[in-house]
Amino acid sequence: MKKRIFFLSFLGFIFAFFLSFKFIYGQSSSSKTDNEYQTFLYRLVDINQHSQFYLSMLNQNRDSLNLSSNNNLLQALKDLQQSRALAIESYFIYLRSELAKTTKILEYQDNLAYVYLDNYQTEARKFSEEIYGLTDWKEIKQRSLRYEENYLSGRKLAYRAIGLINYKKFMDFLSFLLTLIEEESIPDEENLVSQINLIKKDVQAQQRTFLASVDKNSDSQGVLRNHNQFLSQKKEEVALLLKKTINNLN
């Protein structure tokens, strides 16, 4: 009897141990991206403070401005540039981890986008470290201009990544809905399956157009806005279909 109690409690112990591990691990991995996004937001606040500091230094020194000797002003400017680069670094880390969740459906070109995001993140880190070593105004300006160009191409890729993340979210939802309809054999009075499949095809076609134009268009932000608007419209259509199906079940 004692042996049996011992054996059962031992089994229970091992089960509880693994269960608690699973929960703890699950919680930490889900909050990871939130933390990265929070870091990015904190850094944006940091930039605001640095910008104000830089401007106040400029105002104070306006009358007796001597660039070669004004160390405080130079330092304020370097701090500002570094904060900007660090904010961008954490932004790319956040976006990369969000995109990493979508790799299951991504094709080669989009895996490449993931690698590029990685490069832009490294570039931001490099810039934030380099800027501190510079002592000359001209050097700082040249390096900043080079980094600005780099960031502008990185920004285009960021718009592309956001479009991909949204597409993945919607397609996942539609696939889940179709599986549910199939498993639960929901009465198809509204031709739910065929309508959802049509929406799915529309979204896939839109995604191809988006991917073809987002990098090449000068207004990448506008292209992403249109893409998001399209997804929202389709979302409303699905919501309406769901509502009708629920009403039909009454």
Partner: peptide, 22 residues
């Protein structure tokens, strides 16, 4: 309903690196 495709807070920050040397 919770999926928000038009959330622009996740857009890349518009940080201008070009600065004016006084």
């Amino acid at each position: 309903e919770k999926i928000n495709f038009q959330d622009e807070s996740v857009f890349p920050p518009d940080l201008d690196f070009q600065f004016q040397i006084p």
